[in-house]
């Protein structure tokens, strides 16, 4: 066991993938010489050369679209968009090309590409702060990873690069410096397998990335009051491991989703709808969501902190649910 940061885990996953497969290439704005604005690709160009790790113009449409083109011709491109928000900038390429090129050509192609999407608020305003994973979960043809720990980040990124399907890989910027244990001998985590981060019997919380950290903190406060929450980290949103949530909700009868995305039709809305469809007889409390209210994310910390779910809000909501 080693302890490394989430950022280092991502770097190692890229390094080992470049090493293992000659078809893996990495490109994006500033990922080459500079090692990426968040330094995730640091050292890779030096090690593998500029024909495998290289910089690109600020052209999100062609960054993503070329990934699809390279993938259909047999490469395994790993493309970085500097901000997950730019997923929308390259909407045609993400949703129609990456998500549907295989389908609309009747299965003639595989699209083994990875789009790395650093997400979460930065104070840089509404176009650089979102966690837009719900868009991806909503759209067919795309896989979606939301790793929360260094071990998951490394394992899921390697798995994503090996996948023959397009993967939208959300890395949360606030987690980059978070440290965690990693077992180099552990097998890769399969897609669609949630992790139970804490066991409890009163309320099920579904949360990932920064919200997972907050949920875990809230759980400690709640435990002092005798409220035992069960915390589920989905790890991938597509495929989505609903069974683990279902099993937990059968036990607790109550479910709260905490997400850093927008509330309306967010991931929580989907989970709530599925609970309605598949878990109704087990629900003993109103389903609840904590998410960003439906306003854009500001650039001033005080305004940002006002809208992102807090530990206190999680505590208060669970308290109310568990009453």
């Amino acid at each position: 066991m080693r302890t490394i940061t989430y950022a280092k885990a991502l770097n190692e996953a890229l390094d080992e993938s470049l090493q293992a497969d000659e078809d893996v290439i990495i490109y994006g704005c500033d990922v080459g010489r500079w090692g990426g604005i968040f330094k995730i690709t640091g050292g890779l160009q030096t090690k593998y050369g500029a024909d495998r790790v290289f910089d690109s113009p600020i052209s999100e449409n062609v960054l993503v679209g070329a990934g699809v083109g390279a993938a259909v011709m047999g490469l395994r491109p790993v493309v970085e968009l500097q901000f997950a928000d730019f997923l929308i900038t390259a909407g045609d390429e993400v949703f129609f090309k990456a998500g549907m090129w295989r389908f609309m050509h009747g299965g003639a192609f595989k699209v083994p590409m990875v789009l790395r999407l650093p997400s979460g608020e930065t104070g840089a305003g509404p176009e650089h702060s979102a966690c837009p994973e719900a868009y991806v979960m909503h759209s067919p043809g795309l896989l979606c990873c939301v790793p929360s720990t260094p071990a998951d980040a490394k394992s899921l990124l390697k798995q994503a690069i090996q996948s023959d399907n397009p993967v939208m890989f959300f890395e949360h910027r606030r987690l980059y410096q978070q440290r965690g244990e990693i077992d180099d001998d552990a097998p890769l985590i399969p897609f669609g397998k949630a992790a139970i981060r804490r066991e409890g019997r009163h309320v099920t919380i579904v949360a990932w990335q920064m919200m997972l950290n907050r949920a875990l903190k809230a759980a400690e406060t709640l435990a002092e009051e005798g409220i035992e929450v069960e915390i589920i980290d989905p790890r991938t949103l597509a495929p989505f491991d609903f069974d683990t949530i279902l099993t937990s909700v059968k036990k607790t009868g109550a479910c709260l989703v905490v997400e850093e995305g927008y509330r309306r039709l967010g991931v929580g809305a989907e989970i709530g709808a599925r609970l309605f469809e598949e878990a109704l007889p087990y629900l003993d409390r109103p389903f609840r969501r904590l998410a960003i209210p439906d306003v854009p994310i500001s650039s001033i910390p005080a305004l940002v902190n006002r809208i992102i779910p807090t530990v206190d809000q999680i505590v208060a909501t669970v308290r109310e649910m568990a009453a």
Partner: peptide, 30 residues
């Protein structure tokens, strides 16, 4: 719109006009 036959070098088309241009870049890279 999406006739495809890779054995004959026909690699399809983007339904959104101009959408294939970006694909061609990646194919060229490959």
């Amino acid at each position: 719109m999406h006739v495809v036959d890779t054995s004959k070098g026909i690699f399809g088309e983007s339904g959104t006009l101009g959408g294939g241009l970006v694909i061609s870049v990646g194919m060229g890279m490959a």
